[in-house]
């Protein structure tokens, strides 16, 4: 399964979750530092959330104006 973390493609085992994508993309430390994972539409994702083929994940602070 291929997903994109900050637009970088990563290959993962089927059934893996958001946290696995972040580990694979070396982005997990940023989550520990307080950043969050968001989908392509700017919605926050839980780390145990399911991945779908081609899904895009972005690691960033809360976008301005988006209450989280």
């Amino acid at each position: 399964m291929r997903v994109y973390v900050n637009d970088k493609p990563v290959e993962l085992f089927p059934g893996m979750q958001v946290k696995h994508a972040l580990i694979r993309a070396d982005e997990m430390a940023k989550i520990t530092d307080g950043l969050k994972a968001f989908d392509a539409w700017g919605h926050e994702l839980g780390l145990d959330g399911a991945l779908l083929e081609g899904m895009k994940i972005y690691v960033k602070k809360n976008p301005e104006g988006k209450p989280q």
Binding site: H43, L45, G46, G49, L51
Partner: peptide, 8 residues
């Protein structure tokens, strides 16, 4: 559900 999406 499934993607654990926080749709505020």
């Amino acid at each position: 559900g499934h993607t654990h999406t926080k749709l505020t």
